[in-house]
Amino acid sequence: MKPFTYERATSVADAAKASADPSVRLLAGGTNLLDLMKLQIETPARIVDIGRLPLKDITETPDGGLRIGALATSTAIASDPVVRARYPLIARALLSGASVQLRNKATAAGNLMQRTRCAYFYDTTKPCNRRIPGSGCSAIGGHSRADGILGTSAACIAVHPSDLAVALTALDAHVETTNGQGTVRTLPVADLHRLPGASPHLETDLAPGQIITAITVPPAPPGEQIFRKVRDRASFAFALISVAASGPRYALGGVAMKPWRASASEAVLAAGGDVDEAVAAELSQARGHGHGEYKIPLAKRLLGAVIRQSRGDAA
């Protein structure tokens, strides 16, 4: 961990202003950032602790949706009665996403902003375009069992580790952001993260100084909410593949550097196509990388099963 100065933010606007400086990192729960700082993958000169800002509320919105403060912890969200009753998908994703110890600390916005768990990103002795632009991608040709099958590039095949993001994407949730000037912008969670392309180090569409203040979730569509996560252990493990369903909307996790909305599947189904066609439409472009090839059939099976379950078809 490189030396840094520690400050505590006193207002959201100030935190946003400070974050415009690339040498600044905002510290919320710290469960990802501090780990990365110990490894010097993150080397901020200034830490602005935003943990005490009043962004923790979870409130119902007039349209019947939900507004989750950026600093609400996973535990607070998953324990919220409205979330449990109306957005069980969010609760399920969070509850399967980490240990209780981590959930007590990790925040909603931090969850979305966490960085990949690709082993080669973490191993600082290896080339990684995401960590050091232009250095190469060690996952390609390496042990890429956990890496992606959709939206990958020749520069990066990592996946985003958030389960919450997958749930929020199926729910058409948005992030609400602000900057130091008080300009509020919203963007869909599905559009928050960038696919790697040629510049995997650019991870989100947030501008410098733009910070997430809340997640807004519209009223859930009718229909079952489902979250299925395949992983190596029964608990305390990242998803190999996950699928979220909220009524007729589906999203995949563990496949790309962003939560992957299954828009192609949804379109096929909306047009009256069958489940197999819908699954094929989404995953026909999938490309595996060595040890990760299995993710294609696994994603197909899981997406198909979740679609059938959500439509009430027999499994």
Partner: peptide, 27 residues
Amino acid sequence: CDQGQCGACTVLVNGMRINSCLSLAAM
């Protein structure tokens, strides 16, 4: 492990359990 992956460092903060390795004392 010093990275939130084992739980050996679990303590209570205001009654809630956390991994004390992934928290700065200053927080």
